[in-house]
Design a protein around this nucleic acid. Structure first.
Length: 454
RNA sequence: GAGGGCGUAGCUCAGUUGGUUAGAUCGCCAGGUUGUGGCCCUGGAGGCCGCGGGUUCAACUCCCGUCGCUCUCCCCA
């Protein structure tokens, strides 16, 4: 038989038990916080119709979407039965794609079940998404996103709550140095308006200025020129973005510059309101900043946008989100305001691993019951069921080929306790319990052992 | 789609101007210890040197091609 060299597609990963324990640790914390804030779980299919996915993520997004080949198109016969194949519409060979994010499927769900869903609808969703790009550090082709969204309220309180959730999760996970960057698409629109650039070129401006962390201010300038933004406009845009310092000062400075722009002023007011709620919620002020350079690539954001980053290691953003008041309307015709965030669990795990913030457990098993010999097998089996009945995670070693093997197994697996049920113990109706970490061993009754293990 | 780096034992890596039998650490297996892991000691197994071709008396080493992995740009979590 020919052996097939085992491998998986690049940008995908197998999660072995040790890694799964760490993933579950992170996911459980995230889930607990989501539920604490009143969010309920939701899941949607991995595949969606291309009509649903297309046109929501910008041109680049459409390219990075995995599309699924229809069956029975005849395309698969090319090169065998037929030499040529022609189509007039792409939809004739593909009409489905893999989920690209969780926000669009949520919007689809809201539009579809509009009559069954009570607003405000608060849901969280933890599922994989797929992107057909080239993998690199902190970037995969299949990865999990954890989203929490709040549908049905235009209040800045909903945005403040989203930021509070991000802050709480990152804090509970043990992050000490992180910043939640806050901006507003309306302010960016105001700046574009003020600069005299046509409004439909706003996205070009956003993409350019969003790169400041990577290419610096001079780089942004070059990028803007490359995107055919006039010198004149650039000269108006860059000084505004440079405004920094205390949030109140930034807002008042920008506010006076943009006072002629209705949308810009609206954006300023929104941020002011948002920050005031955040203060009432006691979100530590050094965990967030107003960063006018923050733009975010996805096209569907309409109001406040936010992103959280860590200084070290350099890995891009850990979370990203914002308000998207017009996305649901694309499915139902009726605009329903919504806001929320994505947590990038892969990056969070990568950073936590690099900063050694992860618990090191290799197993959730607390105790290994050994088998001394064939005569004591049944006693060991009876014993382990007692331990399990007491609610303690335990394993039994199936092959009784010496205690050495069994101890070695427990040690390698990181199982903290080993129980021995041998002839000596049986005689006194007791068991021996060894604490592998301390290296101490004692003989005791079963009841006493259960007490120690609890 | 464009560019850089790397493919040698299960892992991480060394390998001299091309030279005869390709090494090390960890891990694995056995023993030192006939009721006991982690430390120590002794021994052992394990390699189409990514794949194909070329140059050469001779290639892990040089050249060409190819595949795989990885990083950067674009874009993003």
């Amino acid at each position: 038989m020919e052996i097939i060299k085992p491998s998986i597609p690049k940008g995908t990963r197998d999660f072995l038990p040790e890694q799964m324990l760490r993933r579950q640790y992170v996911i459980n914390i995230i889930k607990t916080v989501f539920e604490k804030y009143g969010y309920q779980p939701l899941e949607t299919p991995s595949i969606e119709k291309l009509d649903v996915l297309s046109g929501k993520y910008g041109e680049e997004g459409d390219q990075l979407m995995f599309k699924i080949l229809k069956r029975g198109t005849g395309l698969e016969k090319v090169g065998r039965e037929i030499k040529e194949f022609s189509i007039t519409k792409f939809r004739d060979i593909a009409d489905l794609g893999l989920r690209y994010d969780l926000t669009v499927p949520l919007s689809r769900v809201i539009a579809m079940y509009r009559n069954e869903i009570t607003l405000p609808f608060k849901r969280y969703q933890i599922q994989p998404v797929w992107r057909a790009d080239r993998p690199q550090k902190g970037r995969y082709r299949e990865f999990f996103q954890c989203d929490a969204d709040n549908v049905g309220s235009a209040s800045m309180m909903a945005d403040a709550e989203t930021i509070a959730i991000i802050n709480e999760i990152l804090t509970v996970l043990g992050f000490k140095q992180f910043k939640i960057k806050i901006n507003n698409r309306k302010i960016l629109s105001g700046i574009v308006e003020y600069s005299g650039v046509e409004t439909n070129r706003g996205m070009d401006v956003c993409i350019a200025i969003d790169k400041v962390d990577k290419i610096g201010i001079d780089g942004v300038k070059k990028e803007l020129l490359q995107r055919e933004i006039s010198d004149n406009a650039i000269a108006k845009i860059l000084p505004i973005l440079e405004i920094s310092g205390k949030i109140e000062n930034i807002l008042s400075d920008v506010s006076s510059l943009l006072k002629s722009s209705e949308v810009g002023s609206e954006g300023i007011n929104e941020i002011r309101e948002l920050i005031s709620y955040m203060k009432s919620m006691d979100i530590p002020t050094n965990n967030y900043v107003v960063d006018l350079y923050l733009a975010r690539g996805l096209t569907y954001y309409t109001g406040p946008i936010f992103e959280s980053v860590v200084e070290e290691p350099k890995i891009g953003s850990l979370t990203g989100g914002g308000r998207y008041d017009e996305l649901i309307g694309m499915f139902s015709g009726e605009n329903i305001p919504a806001t929320g965030t994505t947590l990038g669990i892969e990056r969070i795990i990568d950073v936590m691993t690099e900063l050694k913030m992860m618990p090191e457990a290799k197993t959730s098993t607390k105790v290994l019951v050994t088998i001394f010999n064939d005569e004591t097998k049944d006693a060991s089996l009876k014993l382990i069921q007692k331990i399990r009945k007491a609610g303690i995670n335990s394993e039994i070693y199936f092959d009784s080929n010496g205690l050495k093997k069994q101890f070695k197994y427990a040690d390698k697996m990181g199982i903290p306790y080993v129980v021995i049920m041998g002839p000596d113990e049986a005689e006194k109706n007791e068991v021996s319990l060894k604490d592998l970490r301390k290296g101490e061993q004692a003989q005791m009754t079963v009841e006493k052992m259960l007490e120690v293990l609890k």
